[in-house]
Amino acid sequence: MRTILVLTALVGVLSGSSCSQAQNEDSTVKTHKDSKKGGKKDGKKGKKNQEDTLENRFIDVAIPGLSKLATFSNVPESSSLALADQPGTFYTNADAGNSPTLYKVNAEGKLLQEISLPVANHDWESLAKDDKGTLYVVDAGNNNNSRKNLVVYRVNPAAPQQVSQIPFAYADQTEFPPKKDDRNFDCEASIWHAGKLYLFTKDRAQQTTSKVYALNDQPGQQTAKLIAKLAIPGEVTDASLSPDGRRLVLLAREELFVLEGSDFNAILKAKPRHVDLTGAGQTEGITFTDNQTVVISTEEGSLYQYKL
């Protein structure tokens, strides 16, 4: 039924728009502006602008509040997303099987910088950032729940050769791997908040619970303390906390879970609100840009903006 409604709405959009009207309407995509110049080249650009505008209309009909910003160029895949040092720029990375590289990109999908780190990439799945600009590269992808070399790398992007480490183990894991019904030790999501790193697991057993673990943000061997269990009916792929600390988003594949509260402790007790992102792709990275807006990346290289 939803597909029929979306297609019906799209037909209405197409039938009610002429080429000239589509080219003159404002677009929410920052990477494309209507061209008023003549010539063959500008004509092609105008056609592309029209198509992108119609694409965003279709996306907004299917998922209100979602608009496509860009497609990454020269980035192998995106498994995480964090704000970079300049407005409208982000850090991302690829996961297992790829180089230990951070990619700095902008909202137009352009690759601005490659930052190589002198450490291994066993399975980088998440990035967190503190209030001083330090990045925490969470190498804790653990599909089989059998890894014993879990680690978080602390790095200042301006001095990438100086990397400190937080090796850790989960307080409640005693088997490597545990029985299939207990395999909930894969971490693809993290945030930094008030001097601590919070890790959110991807439930590969029941797909009902994301466990929340806490680490101190300082280097050295640590035990990740289990502090909460969230009722998340999906496999969490990334997380982000709003700047005011009142809203936590947990990303899963083509879906989003929103938890709200007066502080972080209240958030962890809140009932998640579900947002359907069907059709967006393999959603892997998310970060807040303001208290009401998140940017989402997919493994395939799409970059979206979503208004909560």
Score class of each variant (00 low, 15 high):
138 V>I: 14
141 G>M: 06
162 Q>R: 15
9 A>F: 00
172 D>C: 07
53 T>E: 01
193 H>S: 11
34 D>C: 14
291 N>S: 14
30 K>F: 01
147 R>H: 00
132 K>A: 10
169 A>Q: 12
68 K>E: 05
185 F>P: 03
227 I>W: 09
180 K>P: 09
299 E>N: 09
158 A>N: 15
18 S>Q: 05
273 R>Y: 03
302 S>P: 00
212 V>I: 12
248 L>F: 04
267 I>V: 15
123 D>A: 11
192 W>A: 04
68 K>T: 04
206 Q>H: 10
23 Q>I: 00
188 E>K: 10
50 Q>H: 06
188 E>V: 13
33 K>Y: 09
150 L>K: 11
224 A>N: 08
146 S>M: 02
104 K>R: 15
232 I>E: 07
243 P>Y: 05
127 L>N: 05
152 V>S: 05
111 L>I: 07
65 G>V: 10
99 S>Y: 03
215 L>S: 11
36 K>W: 12
249 V>P: 03
107 A>F: 02
35 S>N: 10
107 A>Q: 15
134 T>H: 14
179 K>R: 10
229 K>M: 11
217 D>V: 09
95 D>R: 12
284 E>A: 14
255 E>R: 09
304 Y>V: 08
200 F>Y: 05
38 G>N: 12
14 L>I: 06
85 D>K: 14
117 L>Q: 13
135 L>I: 15
195 G>H: 12
28 T>F: 12
102 L>P: 08
77 E>M: 07
74 N>A: 13
147 R>G: 00
253 R>H: 08
241 L>W: 07
30 K>V: 08
46 G>S: 06
113 Q>A: 13
120 A>V: 14
209 T>Y: 05
54 L>E: 04
60 D>A: 12
94 A>W: 00
289 T>P: 09
204 R>S: 09
190 S>R: 10
299 E>I: 07
162 Q>W: 02
36 K>E: 11
200 F>A: 09
206 Q>I: 07
22 A>P: 01
245 G>N: 07
228 A>F: 09
49 N>C: 01
7 L>F: 02
124 W>I: 05
11 V>H: 03
36 K>G: 12
91 Y>F: 10
